[in-house]
Amino acid sequence: MNKKKWMRKGIALALSAVITAGIAVPPATAEANTGRIIGAIIGGAAAADEMNKQIKYYNTTEEGRQALFQELQEKYGVYYRWDLNSQLDRIFTNLTAAIGSMDATVYDRPYNYFINQQEGFNAFCTLGHNMSVNVGLYSYLSNEDEIAVVLAHEMGHGQKDHPAKGMKRSLGPTILANATGTVLGAIAANIWNGQGLTKPMEWEADNLAFEYISRSPYNPGATAAVWQRVIDLSGNNSANAFDIMSGAADHPSNSSRRDNYAKKLTEMSGGKVTVDDGDVYVNKKRLLTPAPAGGMSSAERAYFVMGNLAAAYRNGHAASAAYADGRTVMLGAQPIISCTDGDTSAAEIAALLNQIK
């Protein structure tokens, strides 16, 4: 084997070991040792060139991304439960179609995905449109619409190639020039903790998720509702035990992300619908305050009602009369809320909606 081929093989093996480590950052000693191997092989611009070639291999070639997918499965284990896997298949089918309606490149690299055996509340998208959902996520989210928002956000990262861009950014020219173990640490952290992902990237993924969800069968209000749920469970501080859609030090706060989606829902409704502290307003007049139900807070449910109302206005259903269909309030063909024992009756809500809509 000539020197050039040996050099490339060494870099490929070192980088492969780190990238496929995925979520868990390797021990510092292992990073340093592997880093010294890389440094001994090449340095400076040559290191950057080889690293970028390997990133491209795992990110864009079918062979590379399938190899990475297999190694991720081996590393973190595959969790299988028929209902959860069927739901995941359904979500990816729906979201792929939604993305395809505005970005046909989604079909160039179909997403690979699996549920892993990690118990933390997380999901991630890494090189090659390889995605995974921790089984622990299902301990916190059970609503399919909210789970779809999480995955839509990650697919937004994937569609804009944020994992590769963030990886290159996090490596940095100084680190690449030195070719130390820090390179490997940065690569591994990029997969789990979102290192290299910037606040603009996060906002872009959030905004794309709204577009994707709005083009899917899911309630667009779930975009705000899932962040309300995170706030209810863990507060507004983004630096907490909940790593979902987070990790970078400069991430937006949970409330700012929720409020960004709420603003978009108001815009979708033509300025008709707002939510304030769990109260749902139509034309600045209070319509209802949902009771806590089904494991959701009043505020979380309010955003689902907001999403249904926004969809009704967007799709022209608001021109029809509201009515009660059993315990469900309908606005034209659009369901608005399925009332529980703690809610105002469907008939009363429908009557008030007709007065203020």
Rank of each mutant, 00 (worst) to 15 (best):
Q334R: 13
L184M: 09
K284R: 14
D276I: 01
N116G: 11
C125M: 08
V282I: 14
L15W: 02
Q87S: 01
A48D: 14
K168V: 15
N354D: 10
M201K: 11
D325Y: 02
H251T: 07
G196R: 04
W203Y: 15
V230T: 05
C125H: 02
W203C: 09
N59F: 05
D161K: 05
T61K: 12
S101L: 08
I147R: 01
S256R: 00
L84W: 03
G64W: 15
N33W: 08
K199I: 04
A47R: 09
A40H: 14
V18K: 05
C125K: 04
K272M: 07
N52G: 07
F210V: 05
A98S: 12
D103A: 14
A225F: 08
S298W: 12
D250M: 03
I175D: 06
S101N: 13
W203P: 08
V18R: 01
A152W: 05
A45E: 15
A164D: 13
G22N: 10
A262W: 04
R215Q: 11
N94V: 01
Y140K: 10
L352P: 01
E144L: 00
A350H: 07
P27M: 09
G77M: 06
S253T: 11
A333Q: 15
I38D: 12
D103Y: 06
G181Q: 03
V230Q: 00
S170P: 05
A24Y: 12
G172M: 09
A148L: 00
S345T: 15
I337Q: 07
G43N: 12
G120V: 07
A346Y: 02
K53V: 13
N190Q: 13
F304Q: 03
I231Q: 07
K53L: 13
R109V: 15
A262L: 03
N122E: 04
N254L: 03
